[in-house]
Design a protein around this nucleic acid. Structure first.
Length: 434
RNA sequence: GGCCCUAUCGUCUAAUGGUUAGGACAACGGGUUUUCAAUCCGUUAAUCGGGGUUCGAUUCCCCGUAGGGUCACCA
């Protein structure tokens, strides 16, 4: 029996390991975690693996790994498949007391067919007539207790004070209360969360696309961004602040401020949060994390010259919204750019003219000192010319000969990172091409 | 279909028995020394409908409507 006396609040996250750790489950886990931490309570992870056919260890590992990555550490861990004896004891008790009975193949609860009323923290009073569930099955046999029964027994045994779960469990609650009454347990507090919905407004499920936490992780979403984003579906502290760290959430969280209506999972908003958190990251750390998202050949180059890589990262840092974005649009830092010479000219300008501009830039750069040049230094060196000839007229071919791309950071930044030699080399290559 | 839950901009949401109904994402427009980002400024945009209660309702009540959840020897 758990030490309930020590903790005023005990919450639990109780997933069944029958699928990957789902983004909808993340919020249930998060809210249980937040509420426990906020009240200096206990947060329990309980694997509900009574369905032997569907439960798989790989899913359990996926859930645990996901929780760890998100930083939602639990204080205690249980696995229902290891608690058969406990369920058996209570099952026998119910049988002995005549509150349950064995029919052909299963153990059923004798349903008093009463009206059950409970007070949901989020929704207020909910009343339901229990006739329609009849003498529902609570176990296949003494050694195989089923969901409704194991949940009730475990929540009691573990001293769970607050059951925070999805609203898809509302219809189950009257059965659990019937069971609690039969067993002589107190009814814990219930808080049924609104569901996270797909874009079609139905409960988020596999057909809505990427859902597993690990997939988001693989795409380069940050745990802080996911937590912040997920917390704000169905909950809001009031006020106009949008960015909340896990610690902020622990401080501000309250069950009373949870929304009643379901909320759509909006990836655009997640992307925005993720970008915000990327921008707040330390560049060194980001440079390290970004490495794994790159093709191997670039990766080794980046490792060889970490200063070079850091400069690239400091520029890309506010251009990407998820880590995997890094591989798009930085090829010119690792390979010679490829492009058609026609692209070099700015809006209808002639190639001859373009060639002149490029040559002029080369000349101006050549007289600059060797060694590191800042974007400002480079800009200063060419700016008078640029102003005289037209910005796009000069800057577009400058940038294009360095990057070969329609879209990229400005030519001063790129050439500063590339270095004087490389910059001149690429400009001369462009000139030769024309 | 039975039972249950829900309803504010396209989306996530704030607020109140009396407000120009606020913020964020997205979209659009503009600034930010060429482009694309990032950033800054701005614009468009909402209280599901009908009855009550009330001096006044988006807010409280009822009825509709719409959406969702759930109806296993799954969880």
């Amino acid at each position: 029996m758990a030490d309930t006396a020590k903790h005023k609040v005990v919450t639990r996250f109780a997933p069944s390991p029958t699928g990957l750790f789902h983004i909808g489950s993340v919020r249930t886990a998060l809210f249980n975690y937040l509420y426990a931490r906020q009240n200096e309570g206990k947060f329990i992870l309980r694997i509900e693996d009574t369905d032997k056919a569907r439960s798989k260890m790989e899913f359990e590992e996926d859930i645990k790994g996901g929780l760890k990555w998100l930083g939602l550490e639990s204080d205690e861990f249980y696995r229902q498949s290891e608690r058969t004896e406990i369920y058996k004891k209570y099952l026998q008790k119910l049988l002995d007391e005549g509150k349950a009975y064995l029919d052909d193949k299963a153990i059923r609860l004798k349903n008093p067919n009463k009206k059950v009323i409970f007070n949901d923290i989020i929704r207020g009073e909910i009343a339901m007539q229990t006739d329609d569930v009849g003498d529902f099955v609570i176990a296949k046999n003494l050694d195989e207790a089923l969901f409704h029964f194991t949940v009730v027994v475990d929540d009691f045994e573990m001293g769970v004070t607050h059951i925070i779960r999805g609203e898809d469990h509302i219809p189950n609650t009257p059965r659990h209360i019937l069971l609690q009454e039969a067993l002589g347990f107190n009814t814990p507090n219930y808080a049924h969360l609104p569901l996270i919905l797909g874009t079609d407004r139905s409960k988020l499920s596999k057909r809505h696309g990427a859902l597993s936490v690990n997939e988001y992780r693989a795409q380069g979403y940050l745990p802080e961004a996911i937590l912040n984003f997920i917390a704000f579906i169905g909950w809001n502290p009031g006020g106009e602040r949008e960015i909340f760290s896990k610690e902020d959430l622990v401080k501000e969280f309250s069950l009373e401020k949870i929304q009643k209506g379901g909320g759509i999972f909006n990836i655009e908003r997640l992307n925005w949060y993720n970008g915000q958190y990327i921008r707040k990251m330390d560049t060194g750390k980001l440079a390290e994390d970004l490495l794994t998202y790159m093709p191997e050949s670039w990766q080794s180059k980046a490792k060889e010259s970490s200063e070079y890589w850091k400069k690239i990262v400091s520029v890309e840092k506010d251009r990407i919204s998820k880590l995997s974005d890094i591989k798009d649009g930085i090829d010119y830092f690792f390979e010679e750019p490829e492009y058609n010479k026609e692209k070099l000219s700015w809006k209808g300008s002639s190639l001859d003219k373009t060639k002149q501009h490029l040559q002029a830039i080369v000349n101006m750069l050549k007289v600059l000192p060797e060694g590191e040049l800042s974007p400002e230094q480079i800009k200063q060196a060419v700016w008078d010319y640029v102003e005289k000839e037209g910005r796009g007229e000069v800057l577009w071919p400058f940038r294009l000969s360095l990057t070969g791309r329609d879209k990229s950071p400005d030519p001063f930044t790129v050439s500063s990172i590339l270095g004087k030699q490389k910059t001149i080399q690429r400009l001369e290559h462009a000139i030769a091409k024309i």
